[in-house]
Design a protein around this nucleic acid. Structure first.
Lengths: 337, 337
DNA sequence: GTGAAAGCGCTAACAG
DNA sequence: CTGTTAGCGCTTTCAC
């Protein structure tokens, strides 16, 4: 067992209050006393118990960040941004991975609530649960990350996925593609659904354009590979000339499928490909992949700002919603030299 | 403020002890009482305070995992493995990113110690600090991840980096390459140093073979790009025909540099390239990159096992050291069709 | 089965 | 400046 303030106080020949003062407001302690306490701490190897401190304080200095997939560089970049911003205010970020599993998501939310985290940053799978609403009503600051709040109830920082989806599809249309396969899913992930709707919307205003949905179950490289194969299988029937993947991980997988096909399919000649997120790996792919860039670190930093604003004592101000506009990045996979 | 057991007890007309029993050993509570308590909890929206619980228990159920770089898929895979294994024993993993900064590493170690984490999994930057030794001596279970313990002091789970480095270099030698640039750094990261030593060792037994060191400051794509450019600049003087990058992120960067060079350099024809880790992106690169595969999730899972074994009450058993052997994965970047 | 009471380690008044 | 004391919310004896 580690020593406590009491043992330090005893050895130093002072009271626990003085030890506490030494720890938190050293200026109120006389130099001589300071030395005695310091010596006692050193010989005992005393380490203040943060848990007790927190219990006293009522709230911790840790912010929980629950993401859909830590394996996705998009989210680690968001986390980095959040971490930096949080550090400025003396908070730290605890990263948790829901892995797109509503049960695990819930478990982490509960964990953070009963750990009395300073707040919750959540990239929710599906619509925010009733449980999340309760958590918030009990006083926990919550900010949705990477997607808007359906009914405006939660503060949120997101990127306009509808616009991004439109942008990506329009880019494919602009380079003359008409038969587009949208690869992504599940559509219960709002971001995916919005990107898809945006793509469909773009196609509506172009003659002969169509967007077909290939809905998968995860936003991973392997799932992209699987869906890519499905698209290839369909090629006899529908001669797709463009693929829009809901994120870069999927795009990387599709690309792999296209390359490994029995009769390899040329990108962008036969099929042009565009992803989403612009993770750094997109630019280093077999064929550098065009993408839609989101300000990842900024998203994380802004989310922390909104969260800290929520933490105010009195009435909760109306929820803020920050929406960034994404940016098209054209590369070789859509014909850029 | 959230309600506490006391308020629940009052509303239910029972004592706090009974509420506690209801929470932890419901079988010792009469059915009728159970109902009353349940109702009180529901109407009050009571959420047990995990912090108080921990204070009482003395130790938390969270294991801290401090990695060199969360942005590196290698580490998120290790984390995933650790998470799964920890969950089986009822523990959860808190991911922290040192970003190869000894100061931040230390801050997180301190944070976890004063939060009385159940244990520490650490992928250390440089040699384990004196502070880490103190932390351990005060009773905190510590396991080194992804590198062996220099003096055998800490339990560890690692992969034989010397063998891996040898393997990678030997592969380049086997396909006829002789002038090899080793890209990686800083060498204060033991894994990098070992891989380099392994490569040098392999070259020693081949006539005319050499390995030159291009030491960088980070294991990132961008740093790989920068070092790649350095190698290219040197090409007039030394006609390198092989590059061994200390990890796949660097390799991806080198590849980018090679492709974007004023006069693009063909891979593997002019320069063969091999990385390390075999992250999933390696296979989807411009030229699929050969690599040295480590059992990432297994590393994480094993680390948790060792940690839980350390947690025993009495004498600490002698430290266990698990060393896995890596595996060569040959792809197009070293000439595999 | 249930209640009363004693802390876990710390901080924040409040006296002195 | 320093000591004393009363909790933060919970669990855990120990009686009843």
């Amino acid at each position: 067992m580690l020593p406590s303030v009491r043992e330090v106080a005893e050895l130093a020949g002072v009271s626990v209050g003085t030890v506490s003062n030494y720890l938190n407001r050293p200026d109120r302690v006389a130099q001589a006393t300071r030395d005695k306490v310091a010596r006692a701490i050193a010989t005992l190897g005393f380490v203040p118990n943060g848990v007790a401190r927190q219990l006293r304080a009522g709230r911790s200095m840790s912010i929980g960040l629950v993401v859909l997939d830590v394996g996705n560089p998009f989210f680690t970049d968001v986390a980095r941004g959040a971490e930096m911003q949080a550090a400025k205010a003396g908070f730290n970020i605890l990263l948790a991975n829901s892995g797109q599993d509503p049960v695990r998501e819930q478990e982490y939310l509960d964990l953070f609530e009963n750990q009395r985290a300073a707040g919750l940053l959540l990239s929710p799978f599906g619509d925010p649960s009733a449980r999340l609403r309760e958590i918030r009503e009990r006083g926990m600051p919550v900010v949705l990350v990477d997607r808007g709040s359906p009914d405006g109830a939660y503060p949120s920082v997101s990127v306009d996925d509808f616009a991004g989806g439109r942008m990506a599809a329009q880019h494919l249309l602009d380079i003359g593609r008409r038969k587009i396969a949208f690869v992504g899913g599940p559509l219960t992930i709002r971001q995916v659904a919005d990107r898809f709707r945006g793509a469909v919307d773009a196609a509506r205003s172009t003659d002969g354009a169509r967007v077909d949905l290939y809905e998968g179950t995860a936003l991973s490289v392997d799932e992209g590979d699987r869906l890519g194969r499905e698209v290839i299988r369909e090629l006899g029937t529908t001669k797709y000339d463009g693929v829009f993947a809901a994120n870069d991980l999927l795009a990387l997988g599709v690309l792999r499928a296209l390359y490994n096909a029995e009769r390899p399919i040329a990108v962008p000649e036969e099929i042009a490909l565009i992803g989403y997120d612009d993770i750094s790996f997109a630019a280093s792919a077999v064929v550098p992949i065009s993408s839609v860039r989101q300000p990842r670190e900024l998203i994380g930093a802004t989310a922390v700002d909104l969260l800290l604003a929520e933490r105010g004592e009195g009435e909760r101000p109306p929820s803020q919603h920050v929406v960034y506009v994404p940016e098209l990045v054209a590369r070789a996979s859509t014909g850029r030299p």
